[in-house]
Design a protein around this nucleic acid. Structure first.
Lengths: 249, 249
DNA sequence: TTACAGAAATTGGTTATCCAATTTTGAGTT
DNA sequence: AACTCAAAATTGGATAACCAATTTCTGTAA
């Protein structure tokens, strides 16, 4: 049959048409020098300006607002936002769930970032940072903590270190990884009654940061991460991964 | 006036209703033991089953498909996909680019990741990885390269290292940082005729990776990054930072 | 029995219309 | 001139009808 081929308009049809729209939108935002808090044009106007249907535009706006780039207020308008929603990591959980091999990558990535951030924090921490970290350690030391309360303080401690490192990019990535692992992190502490050991490993980190000793901070954090990683894998091995639909909030 | 307060149902009303829907959807997928490649129910049925409008469901499905969790084929159905999309790093990009003050953070983050990935690559590289890296170095060595061709090979070299490190998460983050800085990277090479020096700093990295010497790989990469960072800042200082809307594809 | 057209049903995609709520406007009053 | 308050315009949100393309079913011819 010699009917001519259907004209390969593109080798990769996996290029979603939405991606192009997103590009247009982002170009528009940059061109208009939109800053966080500013309102962007009404959907109808914007749709016409970009040459697309309102529904398509709507999908993109929704997606971006779910990711924390925009915020859509009913009857008010759509605004630029610089924050990051925890929905992105939430979605990543699904990806991690699907491919357990990636879970290892997440754990390792977190370990790497934590270590480097601890080092940076030791070099750059201010008095305010030290106070904050000390306070969090104090909270972790309380005897009447429930397991989940302890985990909360623990997470905040690590995020505070990330903040003290003065690198929003690395801190942001860590935040995402953190929330991805939070589900399992809770199990580790809960299942092992690990709070004392965990606490004992945090104080050297704090002291190294206070001393401004970057290398010690890295070493201490590395030790902490190695142990936490081992406990994590042990816990994962114990339960097989099945129930994945519970939640924080 | 003693009318009682409007009952603070929630301190944070910024909880988008879509988040709840995503949760429901995820729960459904896990409950039905959906695996990549499987088709999920038609939009209309699914919408009714979840008790939401089709539009709302549609937004969520679109968002998830943009993130690579799902794939929507017109007239065929929506399918589960093992979530890998370059839009994930793209998101990180958006979050970062809104505040150009984060440029330094991006540079530093890249430096950190490159160093660690080089170390991991030295530990995990296969023969195939070595061959690829060697090939890329050979390409970079060609005398008839244009500046932009050289930069392309350079970028590929670094990404190949990231691949050899066997950590999709760190590699993905690096990729997004890379594309953010690619514009300036070109300028550095072009403006300085830096190819010889650049090449001279790449070979020690390759050799350390071939030898499986993680620490040497880190040191070599760190030296390379430090120099590149200095040249980058010099270039940035020359031009002021203004245009930030470019793109890779 | 098998192969193959063609019709019917089902799919995601698009558009148009309406809705509720907020914001803005402006006349009227103090 | 300043303030009130209601009406009108504008906003995002939701729904229903429609469209094009694919898939599936079915009946007929080989």
């Amino acid at each position: 049959m010699a009917m001519d081929a259907p004209l390969p308009v593109e080798t990769e049809d996996h290029e979603p048409p939405e991606a192009e729209l997103i590009r247009k939108l982002m170009d528009y935002l940059t061109a208009e020098k939109m800053r966080p808090g500013m309102r962007l044009p009404a959907e109808r106007q914007l749709a016409e300006k970009l040459g697309v249907g309102r529904a398509a535009l709507r999908h993109v706006l929704k997606s971006l607002s779910l990711l924390g780039v925009l915020e859509m207020k009913p009857s008010a308008g759509t605004f630029v936002r610089n924050g990051t929603t925890d929905l992105l990591p939430r979605v990543l959980e699904w990806g991690v769930f699907l491919s357990p091999s990636r879970a290892e990558a997440v754990v390792e990535a977190r370990r790497t970032l934590e270590v480097e951030l601890a080092g940076l924090a030791a070099e750059r921490r201010t008095g305010l940072d030290i106070g904050r970290l000390q306070h969090l350690i104090d909270q972790m030391s309380r005897k009447d903590n429930t397991a989940s309360e302890y985990v909360d303080w623990d997470v905040q401690f690590h995020l505070a270190i990330a903040d003290a490192a003065r690198n929003e990019v690395l801190a942001g990535v860590l935040r995402s990884l953190q929330s991805m692992l939070s589900v399992w992190a809770t199990r580790v502490i809960v299942s092992a009654g690990e709070t004392e050991t965990s606490l004992a490993m945090h104080t050297p980190i704090l002291h190294a940061i206070i001393d401004g000793d970057a290398e010690s901070a890295r070493v201490a954090m590395r030790a902490h991460m190695d142990r936490a990683t081992r406990r994590l894998y042990a816990t994962i091995a114990a339960d097989s991964i099945e129930s994945f639909s519970q939640k924080t909030t």
